[in-house]
Design a protein around this nucleic acid. Structure first.
Length: 574
DNA sequence: GCCGTTTTCGGCCCGACTGTTTTCAGTCG
């Protein structure tokens, strides 16, 4: 059983208990346990085998027993009793904006509504406004939320889609009279792999004016709520945006608050309390009622006596403890990347020539570039026959001669791991390539043992240098393959094979949790653009974002090595 | 239900906005 599946059970229990009206802190305990399991880098199955379940934060005796029961029997009596009492589909209603557990419970008990469809029918029939405490406005709002919910295909958006929207909105906000500063916050600032809402913060003493102008922006489709300090809207394309406006002297605390994550903020506020301070977006309040204002975000952390925590780390995964012990890692940045190890050209499915790719890379300060076109069996992507592969080598040598020593172009391949676990080129071909990435693009739905074994045979091949986009997931489109990540990472560590963090925003693969696990196990990583166009080199910032979320330092990333050291590293492998 | 450099019991972050209320509960982040 996957961690995600176990986490979902506990998150559902939390929803059901809350609808049932259970004590809130019991509900929160289940929710926290679910979130905590979701964020684990190790498999719960393994932790259970080692009888260490209660080491998981938020898991005590009661929840540990329920995990054990779930793992050994595939069922949980507590969950079954609960769903016999409260319909299992009710939590779906919580996704409707404006509906929380209390209202969902009333809809169920008083109108017998248990699904989104039934809610829509009842709302259209005007039945909701007849409930006590609900009026026609509430009903209209629910109908509008239902419509928005249906329009959104996916609830979450890819990073490279949201980032330009954010940049454009910020530019417009900065132009408003009285706007001193405008910054992006929320999950985009934390480089979470997908974005639910876009959060923006403006420093201004003219709150009302900024808000009035903001809701007039042409891309805004629907206003969800509007106040002097907080406004939420939905853009015509379905992206939800929240804007906070605070005076400049409170900008730092507001930016910190709006950046989250919520779990990080809760822990930070607990830390504040332990020091006799109350923390909110307005800043600190002492027990005597005096205020400590933070115009800069660093002031928030400084006041608590800890170092500034990079946004990517703010997920309540031990970063506050690390800050308290003064052992925050120095995270990798885009500037640290000296080489690009995974790029395609028009020899396979890329859109630019080798020379164009090399020139674009050189412009970005990249000093070594590995061209890794697809191998022969990947017909849809124009995979290279062995003959074509050698013709390509000749072109690389020509381009190298033409461009000189500012950039070194290496000949690699993204070699398909075939369905039987063998590689798409024979060993005598692989050994002549500078760099070999082994990736999997087909037969991703094989059973776990089979897929894991395929990766293991690739890792054990002495010519393989890196494994590309391990899980094969495409965010919003294709689930990750079912594989035993720990087994593969352990094998990679043993054979000195690197794992890729692929920067394409629909891949981001390894994800942050697996990347962190990889580093724990001593696996080297590569942050790659998997560029198919010259513009794709810019995607590296997203791969770096994932690495930072995984607490990765430059030392763990192979392509931070200066060129000479990288070449030496390659040689040592061959 | 979890947790403990004040605690094994009594806490558990904090504030904005909305709708339907005549002073606040519910929702959200």
């Amino acid at each position: 059983m996957q961690n995600r599946e176990i986490a979902e059970v506990f998150e559902k229990i939390a929803d059901l208990l809350q609808i049932k009206g259970e004590a809130i802190y019991r509900v929160l305990a289940y929710r926290r346990a679910g979130e905590s399991i979701r964020a684990l880098s190790q498999r719960v199955v393994q932790i259970a085998e080692e009888s260490r379940l209660q080491d998981i934060p938020g898991v005590g005796a009661a929840i540990a027993a329920k995990i054990d029961e779930l793992l050994s029997t595939g069922k949980m009596e507590f969950f079954e009793i609960l769903t016999a009492e409260v319909p299992e589909t009710l939590p779906d209603l919580l996704r409707v904006e404006g509906l929380g557990p209390k209202k969902v419970a009333r809809l169920w008990k008083e109108l017998g509504i248990t699904s989104i469809e039934e809610l829509e029918t009842a709302a259209k029939a005007g039945k909701l406004q007849k409930l006590d405490g609900m009026g026609s406005r509430s009903e209209a709002k629910i109908l509008a939320s239902l419509e928005a919910l249906g329009k959104r295909q996916y609830n979450r958006h890819l990073l490279d889609v949201v980032q330009p929207v954010a940049a454009q909105l910020l530019e417009r906000l900065r132009k408003i009279d009285g706007a001193v500063e405008a910054e992006v916050a929320g999950s985009l600032r934390r480089y979470k792999e997908t974005i639910g809402d876009l959060d923006l913060v403006v420093a201004s003493d003219a709150n009302e004016l900024v808000m009035d102008e903001f809701v007039q922006f042409p891309e805004i489709g629907r206003i969800g709520g509007k106040g002097p300090t907080k406004t939420s809207v939905e853009l015509v394309d379905g992206l939800r945006v929240q804007l906070w406006v605070q005076s400049p002297e409170r900008f730092g605390s507001t930016l910190q608050y709006a950046t989250g994550s919520q779990a990080h903020n809760v822990k930070l506020r607990e830390l504040a309390l332990s020091k006799g301070l109350s923390l909110s977006e307005h800043g600190f309040k002492t027990d005597e009622g005096d205020e400590i204002l933070c115009s800069k975000e660093t002031d928030v952390y400084k006041t608590l006596g800890i170092g500034w925590i990079p946004p990517a780390m703010r997920e309540a995964r031990g970063e506050i403890e690390a800050a308290l012990e003064d052992r925050l890692p120095k995270l990798v940045t885009v500037k640290d990347l000296r080489g690009e190890l995974h790029a395609h050209s028009n020899w396979s499915d890329g859109h630019a020539s080798i020379e164009e790719m090399a020139l674009a890379a050189r412009k970005l300060g990249i000093t070594y570039l590995v061209i890794t076109d697809h191998s022969r069996s990947l017909g849809v992507a124009g995979g290279l026959s062995i003959e074509r592969l050698w013709e390509q080598k000749a072109e690389i040598e020509q381009v190298q001669e033409k461009l000189g020593n500012n950039i070194r172009i290496l000949h690699g391949s993204e070699v398909e791991i075939l369905a039987d676990g063998s590689l798409d080129y024979p060993d005598e071909v692989l050994e002549q390539l500078d760099v070999v990435f082994a990736s999997l693009h087909s037969s991703l739905r094989q059973p776990k043992e089979k897929i894991t074994t395929r990766f293991l045979s690739a890792v054990e091949n002495p010519h393989v240098d890196f494994i590309g986009h391990l899980s094969g997931r495409l965010l919003g489109k294709r689930d990750p393959a079912d594989l035993d990540v720990d087994v593969i990472l352990n094998a990679a560590a043993e054979h000195g094979v690197g794992l890729e963090i692929n920067s394409h925003t629909d891949r981001l693969d390894l994800n942050d949790i697996h990347a962190r696990r990889a580093v724990e196990l001593g696996v080297k990583l590569a942050i790659t653009s998997d560029a198919h166009r010259t513009e794709h080199f810019d995607l590296r910032s997203f791969g770096v974002g994932i690495a930072r979320r995984a607490w990765v330092t430059p030392e763990s990333i192979v392509n931070t090595l200066p060129r000479s050291k990288f070449l030496k590293w390659l040689k040592s492998r061959n």
